[in-house]
Amino acid sequence: MAMAASTTEGEPMMDINTTPLIDVMLVLLIMFIITIPVQTHAVKLDLPVNDNSQNQPPPVDPVKNKVTIDPAGTVFWNGSPVTLPVLKQYLDLTQSMNPVPELHLQPDPQARYEVVDNVLAVTKRAQVEKMGFVGNEQFSNF
């Protein structure tokens, strides 16, 4: 197929020749790629040091775990005080174990119902399947 010329013979062509421009751009691109330093895959982070003497999280027992609530409203996980978000993390961890450990809930008779209700809501959100109340005989006098 021949291309039809829109100009007559002998007139100068008014279009810019882009071939040298593209060649120069490709050479510059290759030069930039070669001169870029090799990226390392290591990420240097200053991680916190785990101090074993204090604030060691209580281990998750693979058989049973006990959540207690004292009269002041403090929630304990296997004897160590925890907050509700930390309790949710522990419960999520237990639900991913095989077999799923039992959860024993033992609120104090003098504990506020609001705190016990919040703990029950956390256990429901964590979809705890094996849960039981321990020490119900202490409520028989009320």
Score class of each variant (00 low, 15 high):
Val115Arg: 10
Val86Arg: 05
Lys124Tyr: 05
Ala42Val: 14
Val27Ala: 10
Trp77Leu: 09
Arg125Thr: 15
Ser53Val: 05
Thr123Met: 15
Leu120Val: 05
Met31Asn: 05
Val115Glu: 02
Asn118Ser: 15
Trp77Gln: 03
Phe133Asp: 02
Met97Asp: 05
Leu93Lys: 14
Pro107Ala: 08
Val119Arg: 00
Val115Ser: 08
Lys44Glu: 12
Met25His: 04
Lys64Ile: 07
Asp117Gly: 13
Leu93Asp: 07
Lys124Cys: 04
Lys44Phe: 13
Glu137Phe: 04
Ser80Gln: 15
Asp15Trp: 10
Val63Asp: 08
Ala5Leu: 11
Asp108Glu: 10
Val38Gly: 06
Thr7Ala: 07
Val116Glu: 09
Thr68Asp: 03
Pro81Tyr: 00
Tyr113Gly: 09
Asn141Ser: 15
Gln39Trp: 05
Ser53Gln: 04
Val134Glu: 15
Val49Phe: 09
Asp51Ser: 09
Thr18Val: 06
Asn98Leu: 05
Arg112Asn: 09
Gln39Arg: 13
Phe142Asp: 05
Thr94Ser: 14
His41Lys: 07
Ala5Gln: 09
Ala5Arg: 15
Gly10Asn: 05
Val86Tyr: 01
Ile69Tyr: 10
Ile69Thr: 01
Arg125Ala: 15
Ala126Thr: 07
Gly10Thr: 07
Gln95Pro: 01
Gly79Pro: 12
Met25Lys: 08
Leu87His: 02
Thr19Asp: 08
Leu84Pro: 00
Ser80Trp: 01
Leu105Gly: 00
Tyr90Phe: 11
Leu91His: 01
Asp46Glu: 12
Asp23Glu: 15
Ile16Asn: 07
His104Met: 13
Pro107Thr: 00
Asp92Cys: 10
Thr8Ala: 13
Met97Arg: 11
Ala5Asn: 08
Met97Ala: 08
Glu9Asp: 12
Tyr113Thr: 12
Pro12Val: 04
Leu93Arg: 14
Asn65Trp: 04
Met25Gly: 03
Phe133Gln: 09
Pro57Phe: 00
Glu9His: 09
Val82Tyr: 06
Val116Ala: 11
Met25Glu: 04
Ile69Val: 15
Asn52Ser: 08
Asn65Gly: 08
Met14Leu: 09
Val122Cys: 03
Asn136Lys: 01
Val67Asn: 02
Asp15Arg: 10
Gln56Leu: 10
Thr8Glu: 13
Val122Pro: 03
Asp70His: 02
Pro20Phe: 11
Leu93Ile: 05
Leu45Thr: 11
Met25Leu: 14
Pro20Asp: 11
Val43Thr: 10
Asp117Ala: 11
Glu137Tyr: 02
